[in-house]
Nucleic acid binder design. Structure first.
Lengths: 143, 143
DNA sequence: ATTAATTAAATTGTACTCAATATATTTATT
DNA sequence: AATAAATATATTGAGTACAATTTAATTAAT
């Protein structure tokens, strides 16, 4: 409640906000080269691993809702990276699944994580610490 | 270059991106109560401290450019929180300065940092560690 | 079985965010 | 002084991101 309480330098939220933004910005040229945006990239990472998933579940993995995902996935469908199809068992669900073209894109994406870690060169222990602290906050906050 | 390289769980960028988003989202109801968005809030923090600053310099403090700040500051001017005025010495600069109403808003904002830290309850050493790691990455990346 | 409640996507509207470009002003060069 | 280069904002367009609402489908309750 003193005079420093509201200084930007004393907030934890701000470096979090700014750092996330700058990191995503740093990805842009790398992702441009394979025709993805950052949001599309993290969606593809889930689909490269899981092959297929409904929108709701994809949103839980990515912390995104249908308002963001629906138009994003439609664009990715238009690019031929994914297919969207209502589930037969429960037609409320839209199943998003990766296409052959989407699978093939993975080969081009392999280099991206290492190119990025060259930009953000934290020592391994510090990177691990940061990773753990971020997931700790993420776990607490979404309660 | 192995099969785990592109898994979401192995990226440092993702918890950073998701955590920043969730934290900002957690601020929303608190900031709604005083009529600010998160971006307006961090801009106000700079102005509560510095009183006055040109757009360029404000953008350097916040890691934002004129494309974001110009419309943001116009809205804040319309709300009576700030004034915008071309500098007399160098008319390329727009000086943003806080108004009486903007100053008065500070009293209502004092409670927000503590309300937020109740939501994100990291032990002090861990919060400090996270803070330092984020600024370290931020410093490296913007080179 | 019919109605009510719940769930999953989609839609709408508001607010960033940034790249790229345009405009106006100032400074540096010739 | 006239021209070129640099600087600070503003504008435009594309892409999120989310709250709130709508629609359609499913499940629960009577």
């Amino acid at each position: 409640m003193n005079d420093d309480t509201l200084k930007l330098k004393n907030q934890l939220c701000f470096p979090l906000y700014a750092c996330a933004k700058e990191v995503v910005k740093k990805y842009s040229p790398l992702l441009d080269a394979i025709g993805l945006t950052y949001t599309q990239y993290i969606a593809m990472m889930v689909l490269w691993e899981k092959k297929s998933m409904n929108v709701k579940s994809l949103g839980e993995h990515l912390y995104l809702d249908s308002g963001t995902l629906t138009p994003l996935l439609k664009k990715m469908e238009a690019q031929g990276l994914v297919m969207r199809k209502r589930a037969e068992k429960d037609e409320r669900n839209v199943i998003v699944s990766i296409t052959k073209k989407g699978e093939e894109l993975k080969a081009k994406a392999y280099q991206i994580p290492e190119q990025m870690s060259a930009c953000i060169s934290l020592p391994p222990e510090e990177a691990k610490m940061l990773y753990q602290l971020l997931y700790k906050v993420l776990g607490q906050i979404s309660v």
